[in-house]
Every structure is written in structure tokens, then in C-alpha cells.
Simulated assay, not measured.
Amino acid sequence: MIILIDPYTEERLAKSLAGRPGFFKLFYDTENCGCNGVLAIEIIEQPLETDIKITVKTFTFLVDKQQESLFDKVLKLEADRAYPSFKVTSDSALYSTNVRIKDVRDIANT
């Protein structure tokens, strides 16, 4: 899998890490959802054994092996300039126009 980002998106991703190490996990969140899931990105401290690593510039994205088939081979992640969210697309699909990044690095330690 390949994830394409532009310079503005790269800047926003770096800002969301706040100078701390972390991984961006791309997944469909089905918790408390009566649907097939909502596309989400979380910043986590460590990958799980079932995660696939995708290197994008200086960032590492993770996708669970079981969810990899839900995504096209090449994705484009684009930061919204007017709102604190991201758009995820491919040449053949619009995955979401309102993906927020949730930092859960400290949650696991509390």
C-alpha cells in the first residue's frame, strides 16, 4: 500500500505528533457504530503484531492486515485547509472527507 501526501498535509501530520514519537493507524472504527465503520486515524505508541507498516516520508502509517483489503493500493491523504480534518481518496474511491486524527498515546498509560 502507498499513501501519498502533499507538503501541507505533511506539515499538519508533523504538528499532530507534537514532537513526540508515534504511529498513524488508519482503520475503520466500528465501536459504538451501527454501520460498517467510520474511517479514523489514531496516533498510537506501538504497532500491534497484526499491523502492516507503510512509510510515508518521515511518518509511519499502520493498517491492520485484516483491514488492508478495504483500501485501494494507492491512497491520497489530504489535509483540509479550512477545517482540522483530512480527506482520504484513491483514483476510484472517496473514503471520507472528514477524518480526524485522535492522539491516544497517553490514554493507554492512564
Rank of each mutant, 00 (worst) to 15 (best):
M1G: 01
M1E: 04
I3T: 08
L4S: 09
I5T: 13
P7M: 06
P7C: 06
Y8K: 12
Y8R: 11
T9L: 02
E10Q: 09
E11Y: 06
E11S: 09
L13M: 07
A14W: 06
L17G: 03
L17A: 03
A18H: 06
A18C: 07
G19Q: 04
G19S: 01
K25T: 03
L26N: 07
F27L: 05
Y28L: 11
Y28R: 13
Y28M: 10
D29E: 12
D29S: 05
E31D: 01
E31F: 11
N32H: 12
N32Q: 08
C33P: 00
G34V: 15
G34L: 13
G34I: 14
C35G: 08
C35D: 13
N36A: 08
G37T: 15
V38A: 02
V38Y: 03
L39T: 02
E42F: 07
I43S: 00
I44E: 02
I44T: 14
I44Y: 03
I44W: 01
P47K: 12
P47H: 08
L48M: 06
E49W: 09
T50R: 11
I52F: 09
K53F: 06
I54N: 12
T55E: 15
V56R: 13
V56A: 02
V56E: 07
T58M: 01
F59K: 06
F59R: 10
F59G: 03
T60I: 15
T60W: 02
F61S: 03
L62D: 05
V63R: 12
D64F: 02
D64T: 14
K65T: 14
Q67T: 10
E68L: 08
F71T: 10
D72C: 04
K73L: 06
K73G: 03
K73P: 04
V74E: 14
K76Q: 10
L77S: 03
L77I: 10
E78F: 06
E78R: 09
E78H: 07
D80F: 02
R81N: 14
R81Y: 06
R81A: 07
R81I: 11
R81H: 12
A82F: 13
A82Y: 14
Y83R: 11
P84L: 05
P84M: 04
P84Y: 09
F86I: 13
F86E: 01
K87H: 12
V88Y: 02
S90W: 12
D91A: 10
A93W: 13
A93N: 15
A93F: 13
L94F: 03
L94T: 14
L94M: 07
Y95M: 07
S96W: 05
S96L: 01
T97W: 11
V99Y: 00
I101F: 01
I101M: 00
I101D: 01
K102C: 00
D103H: 04
V104Q: 07
R105V: 05
D106P: 02
A108G: 04
A108H: 07
T110A: 00
T110Y: 09
